[in-house]
Design a protein around this nucleic acid. Structure first.
Lengths: 231, 231
DNA sequence: AAGAAATTTTTGGTATACCAGATATACGCG
DNA sequence: CGCGTATATCTGGTATACCAAAAATTTCTT
């Protein structure tokens, strides 16, 4: 058999398209068209769509084409609230479960992020962002709780686009750098309370920033569509 | 179109079978056999299996039959730890977001549970358990955070069987009754800290009980297979 | 008789064909 | 000219057919 990472491959591709804005929020994902376009059958494409649906990136509608999710501000805030709880738990558990090597790896990611953060531009921003994601993912894995790590990853994926739009901003980049550093320091000190509070602050700032982004969008300067020049 | 709750229907049926033990942990779920048995095609059955997989009830293996999950003690404890974080967040949010009507509904569920808890036997235990689930689900919904409620529901479903085996015990029933009452009281007082601590205690007790169950199983008195006489 | 290799069978993955509902379009009527 | 209805088309849901990989079984060899 083919080991069948095919639906995952398709999901990955669609996910990136959604992140880049090639597939804009609200766009329908028609089984036939996309299957033909990607050169696969409807069946695996269908599965890929379900994967993205479970991640919250697309929205299934009964007897209708699935559409790329276009979450409201409240939905995003709700999701971040859950993410916050998951990350705080991750951080606390990581303090007592993570190996020194894992914490070192987290630090390494933080420093790679720091280095790129200054220079990144254009397509490089995607790489910057992926390191950002990897940083948070590494903490979740360091909890040594696979279920937690998986759910956390799902929430991270769900908000890819929103977090991306936020993380790309120059101002936000500055903040993220120091906050990441604080989290790493807390982990190295194995101080759960400190890590929890730092992560809490980090995500609270994210909520603030996302709120700003949404308000800007409503005001007219639409920052969430292709016009931002991501491509 | 058929509105297509068909995969969900199948998933529901399989889920119940797993709960009752008709499908024992480790049993393979063969697409062809089960599809034929249920009188449907492989396609929707396949989707149903994916749903259960995402819930964690079955385990997908590349190029292999999916099997009914047989989580280890660690996996169960890990999942409960996440559930704990989710429920605590739910409770805290519910304190400030829930309507009085919602809290009243939660109380009603608690009292129905109380009433049945004394008398339930045999098949009635499933109903008792479903009310227990509904109680927790209602709190999650009362948070007015749909994402949270959904993830919470997924975790609840994932541990159906384990929680069922725990909840059925006479001793556990006693404890659950008073703890539910405490949680309701906290909600009515709209005291987030109190609710958080009560929920924390409730789930900590669940972990203890599940640990006991696992130890008993390993000791030989296998409480998690059909021999418990659920059917 | 035991082990290894080849073949058969079983199983999931993928492609495709068919069906029903929902939407869009076009035509006819007021 | 506008609105309602009928029809054509588009779309997702389901069934089925085909393929390749993995077990299981059988058979051949030593």
């Amino acid at each position: 058999m083919t080991a069948s990472p095919l639906p995952e491959q398709i999901a990955l591709r669609l996910r990136r398209d959604i992140l880049r804005g090639t597939l804009a929020p609200g766009d329908p994902i028609k089984e036939r068209d996309n299957a033909l376009e990607l050169g696969v059958s409807r069946t695996p494409l269908r599965e890929a769509v379900r994967i993205l649906a479970k991640e919250g990136l697309v929205q299934l509608r009964p007897a209708r084409s699935p559409v790329v999710a276009d979450p409201s501000l409240k939905e995003v805030r709700d999701a971040v609230a859950v993410l916050q709880a998951l990350e705080i738990l991750s951080g606390e558990l990581a303090c007592r479960e993570a190996s020194d090597a894992e914490i070192a790896e987290i630090r390494a990611l933080s420093e790679r992020h720091l280095a790129l953060s200054e220079t990144a531009e254009g397509e490089g921003l995607i790489e910057l962002f992926e390191i950002d994601m990897a940083f948070h993912t590494a903490i979740a894995r360091a909890s040594h709780n696979p279920a937690l790590a998986e759910t956390h990853a799902a929430y991270l994926a769900r908000m890819w686009r929103q977090r991306y739009l936020s993380a790309v901003q120059r101002r936000a980049r500055e903040r993220v750098r120091t906050q990441h550093e604080n989290i790493v320091a807390g982990l190295e000190a194995r101080d759960p309370a400190r890590v929890a509070s730092e992560i809490n602050a980090h995500l609270a700032a994210l909520i603030t920033n996302l709120t700003r982004l949404f308000e800007a969008r409503e005001a007219g300067r639409d920052l969430t569509t292709d016009e931002t020049g991501i491509e």
